[in-house]
């Protein structure tokens, strides 16, 4: 196992005036290069947890170390944000400028990077998300999926070690969703960028290295997708869903077929059923 890049020890966070903490005593360690999906119903604390990772909020108690930095001062926060980028849910509300490439440059401009360096990294980042042809386009002419790719490029240009996606596919159609998830997965595999992927879509979570389910501000379940989704009843109780194949294999097992536990994809299921025939 690689060394942890995110280390949360008993982290809690309570909004001012709130009755109960939004994040409650969470301990979690994420290894460098891991792809972790975070699930949980609305209000389970996942978005707040994301904001803690990016130092947009600081824990009220506990210790959170991101890329070796424990954010205390304002300068620490900027250091954390530099190494941990964030892509939000609404594609319209995170693009700052009227030209695609200038938006990608925004983060680097804030860091005071020299112009030639910005130019190079922006071109690279746009290339990486397949949006080079749109460098001079206006964001308002792009589809939701394309806007999210621009948002990813803007983060990528800052060369972060971690990218947190906070329900970044929730407002997209299936093609946009597939594109953005595909980019995140590729960046994770090829560039070894650690990804924290917050989502409501079980089929996305099924492709992660690890799944963390939050409920009431706490971690309710944790493990590989197979381990987590095998606990079907518990997952449903937590307001989530399990992949269709998992449900089907359960029904088939109930009817006496000898299928192994934890079949998640159509391919796996087809292979097992062909073996039985």
């Amino acid at each position: 196992m690689n060394k942890p890049i995110i280390e949360a020890r008993n982290v809690s966070f309570q909004y001012e005036g709130a009755q109960s903490p939004a994040v409650n005593d969470v301990s979690l360690s994420v290894a460098q290069g891991e792809f972790v999906a975070v699930l949980g119903r609305n209000g389970s604390g996942k978005s707040t947890f994301a904001k803690l990772l990016n130092a947009l909020q600081l824990p009220t108690s506990g210790e959170l170390i991101v890329n070796g930095i424990k954010a205390v001062t304002e300068d620490d926060c900027y250091e954390v944000r530099k190494s941990c980028g964030m892509v939000f849910q609404n594609p319209d509300n995170q693009i700052v400028t009227t030209i695609v490439e200038e938006d990608c440059a925004f983060g680097l401009e804030n860091l005071g990077t020299p112009p030639e360096e910005i130019r190079r990294r922006v071109d690279e980042a746009l290339e990486s998300v397949g949006m080079s042809d749109y460098a001079l386009a206006s964001p308002s002419m792009l589809s939701g999926g394309q806007k999210q790719r621009i948002a990813v490029a803007g983060v990528l240009a800052m060369r972060p070690k971690i990218i947190v996606f906070d329900e970044s596919t929730a407002m997209l159609d299936p093609i946009g969703r597939r594109d953005v998830f595909g980019i995140a997965r590729r960046l994770n595999l090829e560039e070894r960028i650690t990804v924290v992927w917050i989502t409501h879509f079980m089929e996305e979570a099924a492709l992660a290295d690890r799944v963390v389910v939050m409920d009431g501000g706490k971690i309710a379940l944790e493990g590989t997708p197979r381990e987590v989704f095998s606990r079907t009843e518990q997952v449903l109780e937590l307001g989530l869903d399990v992949p269709e194949m998992m449900k089907l294999s359960r029904q088939l097992r109930d009817k006496g077929l000898s299928l192994p536990e934890g079949l998640m994809t159509v391919e796996e299921m087809a292979v097992e059923l062909c073996r039985l025939k």
Partner: peptide, 15 residues
């Protein structure tokens, strides 16, 4: 904007 390290005009460069 905060998440992308925006802290006003001071120390900013332009592409």
């Amino acid at each position: 904007m905060d998440a992308r390290c925006y802290r006003g005009g001071a120390g900013r460069t332009r592409m």
